[in-house]
């Protein structure tokens, strides 16, 4: 069916013209207020009595350029740790969340252990887990002890796995019971129902908060430097100590933000795509 040829009425033309004027108006107002606020901020900061000193100690381009290679080296460690730890924590969180949904008396110890794990590691400060694993465990002097880096990564996985498990569990519980009834009525087993009906919907629903936690993890992976390995922040700290200037920290901060942008963009894209796929067809 093709729609009939349509000529807008005079009233509609007046309405469209009015809306166009209004949107031009809005853009002008937005541009003006942004410019005003920006100017105000710049004037307030650069006009401050200590601005020259702050600029010298935080925004020295020469020192920044000198520190960049070392900070980038450190950042590479952050990136590798992030990828491994994010994968590990997501997997651990998913497994723990699924274990917590199991019913039946046989699974009581598994359920109790999984619950105990999420309670413990969400309550325990990351730094303490890091110290226990990277300083305490090597102290056992066991054979085949993994490196401090691996132990530090393990501490991150254990801590973040606890958070992610709760996010996954919220997703699983948000799937309506009628979906389970439909799946079971088709003869799917509990496992098949979880695998093909519940988890796909749950994971899609909690993808944004999951990725949000991954962004948080990105900042925390640097804490392994407490046990020795040199990450971007530690590299910046070393550079700062050599030059008595804080610019390397600013460099590291900017790099962290740049690293986060693609991850955040992916989060937004994933959210948008799942919303569109289900409603558009």
């Amino acid at each position: 069916m093709t729609p009939r040829e349509h000529t807008p009425s005079a009233a509609q033309l007046r309405r469209s013209a009015y809306r166009r004027r209004q949107s031009v108006h809005s853009v002008l107002i937005a541009a003006f207020s942004t410019a005003a606020l920006g100017t105000l901020l710049v004037v307030a900061v650069t006009g401050a009595p200590g601005w020259d000193r702050v600029r010298r100690s935080f925004l020295d381009p020469e020192i920044g350029a000198d520190a960049l290679p070392a900070v980038l080296d450190g950042l590479w460690l952050n990136v590798r740790l992030l990828v491994c730890c994010a994968a590990g924590a997501l997997l651990l969180g998913l497994v723990i969340a699924v274990l917590r949904t199991l019913r039946g008396p046989v699974f009581f110890p598994v359920r109790a252990l999984a619950a105990g794990y999420t309670y413990t590691f969400r309550g325990l400060p990351l730094i303490i887990v890091l110290y226990l694993l990277t300083l305490g465990v090597p102290g056992l002097r066991l054979q085949g002890m993994p490196s401090v880096l691996v132990l530090g990564g393990l501490a991150l996985v254990l801590t973040y796995g606890g958070y992610l498990a709760e996010v996954f569990r919220a997703g699983i519980e948000s799937v309506h019971p009628s979906q389970l009834a439909a799946a079971r009525s088709l003869g799917l087993t509990y496992r098949q129902t979880m695998r093909h009906v519940v988890l796909p919907q749950a994971v899609r629903r909690v993808a944004p908060p999951l990725l949000n936690d991954v962004v948080a993890l990105q900042k925390d992976v640097g804490l392994v430097s407490l046990a020795g390995p040199i990450d971007a922040v530690r590299a910046a700290q070393i550079a700062t100590a050599q030059s008595f200037n804080y610019t390397p920290y600013v460099v590291a901060g900017v790099l962290f933000v740049l690293l986060a942008i693609p991850l955040i963009a992916v989060t937004d894209w994933v959210t948008l795509r799942s919303a569109r796929r289900q409603s558009g067809g």
Binding site: S178, A182, R184, S185, L186, G187, R204, Q278
Partner: peptide, 19 residues
């Protein structure tokens, strides 16, 4: 599960899998 394979059920709210 084996019993349900022999029975088809249709619900008031359809209960199709949205994903």
């Amino acid at each position: 599960d084996r019993v349900r394979r022999r029975i088809g059920m249709v619900f008031q709210a359809y209960n199709l899998f949205p994903h």
